[in-house]
């Protein structure tokens, strides 16, 4: 079904890396006040690389699936590279999306950027 491709439904039904890290090095929460979506992103770093990433939150299927997918994508990546991650990459990774829902799809990415900004 348009707007809810297999990728989104898969991550919505079986979220990856959902929960809290015991001792995160970086962390940020982003919320969309209009619809109540909340995403917390937590990162553990080893040197300049992300060694673990977890998310927690509540909200619509798209915001939560995007957060799940993002945790998978950033694990093992250098922090410098993640700061370059563009909106369009996030959107295309989720497959077909209706334009009315892109703010849901980008919430986790905003949280990631916020987390990376800290202590820089």
């Amino acid at each position: 079904m348009k707007g809810y491709g297999e990728i989104i439904l898969d991550h919505w039904r079986r979220p990856r890396n959902k929960g809290r890290l015991p001792a995160p090095d970086r962390e940020a929460v982003e919320a969309n006040a209009l619809c109540g979506d909340v995403v917390r992103m937590q990162l553990e770093l080893e040197g300049t690389r992300v060694s673990a990433a977890m998310f927690d939150g509540q909200g619509c299927a798209i915001s939560q699936a995007a957060a799940s997918l993002l945790t998978e994508r950033i694990k093992g990546k250098p922090v410098g590279q993640l700061a370059q991650l563009a909106d369009q990459e996030m959107l295309s990774a989720l497959g077909e999306l209706t334009s009315t829902r892109s703010s849901c799809a980008l919430l986790a990415l905003w949280a990631l950027r916020q987390a990376l900004k800290e202590d820089q």
């Binding site: 348009k2 707007g3 809810y4 619809c35 109540g36 209706t98």
Partner: peptide, 13 residues
Amino acid sequence: GVHPHDVATLLDQ
């Protein structure tokens, strides 16, 4: 357990 925005988007289809 389903966000209303998901329902509205699916119904729109």
